[in-house]
């Protein structure tokens, strides 16, 4: 239970960075941390005490492997999610550089040329 509470604290730190920081680069860092925390949550849901990696070693007993291995499905999905997180971060860095070029600042609250 303590483990889940710590993980929620990790999620909350990323969430705080995304919401409360004014520098656009800090916001990107906050989203990266949130991304890390969500990936860790999914992997931890699939963990079993004393579990081994879902790779059967040569000569390992098949039934014993199935009984001991951690859940492989969250791992397969998180692998996709990590790479997509990379793409999102790249796109946001490009946006931040463009904001700096057009507004000469990285302060998110200054970006108000379209304000109604």
């Amino acid at each position: 239970m303590t483990m889940w509470a710590l993980l929620i604290a990790f999620l909350a730190v990323g969430f705080y960075g995304l919401l409360a920081k004014r520098n656009v680069i800090k916001k990107i860092l906050g989203l990266t941390i949130l991304d890390h925390a969500v990936n860790l949550l999914l992997i931890m849901i699939g963990y079993r005490h004393g579990g081994c990696a879902p790779i059967r070693l040569p000569g390992e007993d098949h039934a014993g492997f199935v009984a001991r291995s951690v859940d492989p499905i969250p791992q397969a999905l998180v692998l996709t999610s990590i790479v997509i997180g990379l793409g999102i971060t790249m796109l946001m860095v490009a946006l931040a550089l463009r904001i700096r070029q057009c507004y000469r600042t990285l302060d998110g609250t200054e970006v108000n040329r379209l304000k109604g």
Partner: peptide, 13 residues
């Protein structure tokens, strides 16, 4: 934590 019972994952394993 650590008490996962893979239901779908079991078939894959």
């Amino acid at each position: 934590f650590g008490g996962a019972r893979p239901l779908v994952g079991h078939w894959y394993l």
